[in-house]
């Protein structure tokens, strides 16, 4: 790339970008600050002292419903969704490298899964379970509902990945006598590992934060977003913000772990 003087458009555009980032992060920063509101403080500024009272409040079950339980359920569900999304998307990605009967239909089905409104999927799965005489539960109907959201993302990422993946690696492995399974296990998976981590990140975070698709599919026990939603209607103290801070913190930890993992893999490969 040659260096050239910045064009006239650069600074206005950079300013616009800066405003956009402030718009994205500003509100989150505010609630993080306000979650340390003093015991007398309310939902808006000014801060009346600083305390961790609202975080302590969060863990007293009677105050805000079942935070601990719903948090645990959401983490578990997120973990299951992650594993299923990575495995199933990877397999489908391998499959879609050639045409097979129904490949076009399956592709459009996956795209449809992304486009059909979440509340509709939720309603449909809820009704299906009801008609089948089954009780919806977060680990059955809830899991399925979340997968209809994470799998298309996983598949689209795998499409993009395999479009840039040279089959020469596999041919080399085959020439050296590797079985199809060995080729995948020792050649394809290691090369694509960063992308698979990316798919996993989508799987976990989308599931962990999913509300609409959980609404009619979670059954008796709430997942965390359902719990948060319930709180928005009847909690008027900064404990709401404390919850926001904790959930967002967990999301950031997961994102940081995933990105850190990808960077570590890149570095180990020596800039390759």
């Amino acid at each position: 790339m040659q260096t050239r003087a910045r064009s006239r458009g650069f600074w206005p555009l950079a300013a616009f970008f800066g405003l956009f980032v402030a718009f994205l992060y500003g509100p989150t920063v505010t609630i993080v600050v306000l979650s340390f509101q003093g015991p007398e403080g309310g939902l808006t500024f000014p801060m009346r002292g600083v305390s961790t009272r609202w975080f302590e409040n969060l863990f007293e079950t009677q105050m805000v419903g079942d935070f601990g339980g719903s948090f645990l359920r959401s983490m578990t569900l997120g973990a299951i969704v992650t594993v299923v999304t990575v495995v199933v998307s990877f397999m489908a990605g391998l499959a879609f490298r050639r045409r097979f009967p129904g490949s076009t239909a399956l592709f459009y089905l996956a795209v449809a899964s992304l486009i059909v409104p979440s509340v509709l999927v939720s309603l449909g799965i809820g009704l299906m379970f009801r008609l089948a005489g089954l009780d919806p539960a977060w680990w059955s109907s809830g899991l399925g509902a979340h997968l209809t959201w994470t799998l298309p993302f996983g598949l689209l990422i795998m499409f993009a990945v395999f479009n840039r993946f040279s089959p020469a690696y596999e041919e080399a492995a085959r020439d050296l006598g590797a079985s199809p399974w060995q080729t995948i296990r020792h050649v394809v998976v290691p090369i694509l590992l960063p992308s698979l981590i990316g798919v996993g990140l989508f799987g976990f975070t989308l599931s962990y934060d999913e509300f609409a698709r959980s609404l009619y599919t979670a059954g008796t026990f709430n997942t965390l977003p359902l719990e948060i939603y319930g709180m928005t209607t009847n909690v008027t103290t900064p404990v709401l913000y404390a919850l926001g801070t904790v959930t967002t913190g967990v999301s950031f930890l997961v994102i940081a772990a995933a990105l850190g993992g990808v960077m570590l893999l890149r570095r180990r490969r020596g800039g390759g």
Binding site: L24, Y25, G26, P27, T28, T30, I31, L34, L43, T44, F45, L201, F202, T205, L206, Y208, D209, F211, P225, I228, Y229, T232, L240, Y241, L243, G244, T247, T248, S251, F252, V254, I255
Partner: peptide, 16 residues
């Protein structure tokens, strides 16, 4: 931000 909770992001407009 896309990977964080939508509901929390909505709530976070209240103080603004």
């Amino acid at each position: 931000p896309f990977w964080t909770s939508n509901i929390i992001r909505m709530i976070s407009w209240i103080p603004f």
